[in-house]
Amino acid sequence: MSIQHFRVALIPFFAAFCLPVFAHPETLVKVKDAEDQLGARVGYIELDLNSGKILESFRPEERFPMMSTFKVLLCGAVLSRVDAGQEQLGRRIHYSQNDLVEYSPVTEKHLTDGMTVRELCSAAITMSDNTAANLLLTTIGGPKELTAFLHNMGDHVTRLDRWEPELNEAIPNDERDTTMPAAMATTLRKLLTGELLTLASRQQLIDWMEADKVAGPLLRSALPAGWFIADKSGAGERGSRGIIAALGPDGKPSRIVVIYTTGSQATMDERNRQIAEIGASLIKHW
């Protein structure tokens, strides 16, 4: 067993022997301040990774656009098919120029040779490549099948209805392509620590998230040296922004954090800054 596999296998073990965790309302004060600064709703939840206990939450059962955070769930569904012998990570998928959609920095470079399922998941999570996500959605049967996968996990809230990039439209009061912070946090925890996926697939999923290259201005910008984070960000229309993450000190994750916002007129930089400040408060009061 590799060191990384050992780390993920012992996530519940280490967490069980940690000192009790206590909620700190100071972080919620910052979440509410972010709402004021952005002029928009902000949803927040913080779960203990081992027990699933909610440590703090704000608007945990209000719907927010998922945006690209759905790509972690998508690759979880792909990995479940791999575990069941219905898919192979090494299978190569070929596609054409007509398949390319807006923001496809990886797939646009491989029109000639195609990409493997493993490479597509890596591109979808680490670079948020939209064509990679659409190609992977095709392998599982489309958005409705991802929703069905989530329902089978016990998540009857999260739903995907459309493809990239239309799913980022974020129309107010439109339930399409949305989740709730509580539902997303619980589902992410199941994917990373539950028995739904094999140990190898859980490790692969967290490795992809740990290698995320496009979430630097968010929670990662607030992390002290030595902290662990595996995350996936999302951005959408109407001032929408979000991030889902597993993080913790001492090089291992111990909490799940989900943050979503929508309806702001603020710039992307300002949305990023507010999420980073929430992260800084979380870490300060850990």
Rank of each mutant, 00 (worst) to 15 (best):
Arg162Gln: 12
Ser57Val: 11
Thr147Ile: 07
Leu167Lys: 00
Glu166Pro: 09
Lys190Pro: 03
Asn168Tyr: 03
Lys30Gln: 07
Thr179Ile: 01
Asp129Leu: 01
Thr158Met: 02
Asn168Pro: 02
Thr147Cys: 06
Thr261Asp: 05
Glu145Cys: 12
Met209His: 00
Glu145Ala: 08
Thr139Phe: 12
Asn173Tyr: 13
Ala185Cys: 10
Leu111Ser: 09
His151Arg: 09
His94Asn: 06
Gln204Phe: 10
Thr267Phe: 10
Leu282Cys: 08
Val257Trp: 00
Ser233Asp: 00
Gly263Asn: 09
Ser51Val: 10
Ala133Gln: 01
Ala222Gly: 08
Ser221Glu: 14
Ile283Val: 14
Leu47Asn: 03
Asn98Thr: 08
Val29Gly: 10
Leu218Met: 15
Ile275Asn: 03
Asp177Tyr: 01
Ala225Cys: 10
Ala40Arg: 03
Ala132Met: 03
Pro253Arg: 09
Phe58Ile: 13
Asp207His: 12
Gln86His: 14
Leu135Gln: 14
Ile275Pro: 02
Leu247Val: 07
Ser51His: 07
His156Ala: 08
Lys109Arg: 09
Thr186Ala: 12
Gly52Gln: 14
Pro65Met: 00
Glu270Tyr: 14
Gly239Tyr: 02
Asp231Trp: 03
Leu47Thr: 11
Gly52Val: 04
Ser201Asn: 10
Arg59Ile: 02
Leu79Ser: 04
Glu26Ser: 12
Lys284Thr: 09
Ser57Pro: 01
Pro25Ser: 11
Tyr95Asn: 02
Lys144Val: 08
Leu160Lys: 01
Pro65Ser: 05
Ala84Ser: 12
Ala148Glu: 07
Val258Pro: 00
Ile206Arg: 09
Ala170Phe: 06
Leu73His: 12
Leu49Glu: 03
Leu73Arg: 03
Ala84Val: 13
Pro25Tyr: 09
Glu277Ser: 07
Glu169Gly: 10
Asn134Ile: 03
Leu219Thr: 03
Asp33Pro: 00
Glu237Phe: 11
Ser240Trp: 02
Thr179Arg: 00
Gln37Arg: 09
Tyr103Gly: 11
Gln274Ile: 14
Leu282Tyr: 03
Gln88Arg: 14
Arg118Gln: 14
Val82Lys: 11
Leu146Lys: 00
Asn50Thr: 10
Met115Ile: 07
Gln204Asp: 09
Ser201His: 15
Ala185Ile: 03
Ala246Lys: 04
Glu56Asp: 09
Arg118Met: 07
Gln203Met: 06
Asp207Thr: 09
Gly239Glu: 03
Leu199Cys: 13
Gln204Lys: 07
Arg202Asp: 03
Val214Trp: 06
Met180Leu: 09
Ile171Cys: 15
Asp48Gln: 05
Phe149Gly: 05
Thr178Arg: 01
Lys71Pro: 01
Lys30Arg: 10
Gly216Ile: 10
Pro224Gly: 12
Pro165Arg: 08
Ser281Asp: 15
Leu150Ser: 14
Ala182Arg: 10
Arg238Leu: 12
Ile206Leu: 10
Glu164Arg: 01
Val78Thr: 12
Met184Glu: 01
Thr193Arg: 14
Arg202Pro: 00
Leu73Pro: 13
Ile45Thr: 15
